[in-house]
């Protein structure tokens, strides 16, 4: 476990836990895309199928449980909680899931490490994670500006992806045969998706103005 990966996991943990705590505290999910949260819940469900099948490490198991619990809790809050659900911006969060789920599933059936259920589901979760943020970015685009709830969330997620790329570079040079094309390519695509958001986030932060995303 290298520092980049630990920092990446902690930032990723921070993004979901901070989001859950904020939604729980202010009883609002304004600016948050339920579609993205549902896609992330599917990412974790598809990737952590072997959670109880084979034990990697205590850290690994605990983190998987926390990610599953927090992502499903966020979806529950946004769909079921009597107060929070009223703050959900339904008419703007209209990105259709199937435009993301089906291509990822087809790609996972075509490109995977081994044509077994678990490997296909793993590849599916990797591809899905790469594009799961799209509904959130579209929602931010539509609502034009971004309150700090969604801003911090996307910012932490982007930081986690950038740290993971550093982790892969580090592991590539320090561990023989550490090659994971599927994760690497999907991870780079995912990080690029954040890049333009970062550009606007940092420029608005520097000019100390409300973040205005171009239409």
């Amino acid at each position: 476990m290298n520092l980049f990966r630990l920092a990446g996991d902690m930032t990723h943990l921070l993004s979901v836990v901070v989001l859950l705590l904020k939604i729980h505290t202010i009883k609002s999910c304004a600016g948050i895309s339920l579609k993205t949260q549902e896609l992330y819940a599917i990412v974790f469900a598809a990737r952590y199928l072997d959670l109880f099948v084979h034990f990697m490490s205590l850290y690994n198991t605990i983190m998987k449980l926390v990610f599953l619990a927090s992502s499903f809790s966020i979806v529950w809050y946004m769909r079921q909680h009597k107060i929070v659900r009223r703050t959900y911006d339904k008419e703007h969060d209209t990105f259709r899931h199937q435009f993301i789920l089906l291509p990822c599933l087809v790609l996972a059936l075509l490109i995977n490490e081994k044509f077994t259920f678990r490997e296909v589901m793993w590849a599916f979760s990797i591809y899905l994670e790469a594009v799961a943020i799209l509904p959130q970015l579209v929602l931010l685009q539509r609502t034009r500006n971004i309150d700090n709830l969604a801003g911090h969330y996307v910012f932490f997620l982007g930081a986690y992806r950038a740290l993971y790329i550093l982790n892969w570079i580090y592991r590539y040079f320090t561990e023989p045969h550490f090659v994971h094309w599927i994760s690497w390519i999907a991870g780079i695509v995912q990080t690029l998706l954040y890049a333009d958001f970062f550009y606007y986030y940092i420029t608005s932060w520097k000019n100390n103005v409300k973040l205005e995303l171009p239409a």
Partner: peptide, 10 residues
């Protein structure tokens, strides 16, 4: 059987 490549990352 362990997955084809050791998947130790989250």
């Amino acid at each position: 059987d362990a997955p084809s490549t050791k998947k130790d990352e989250l």
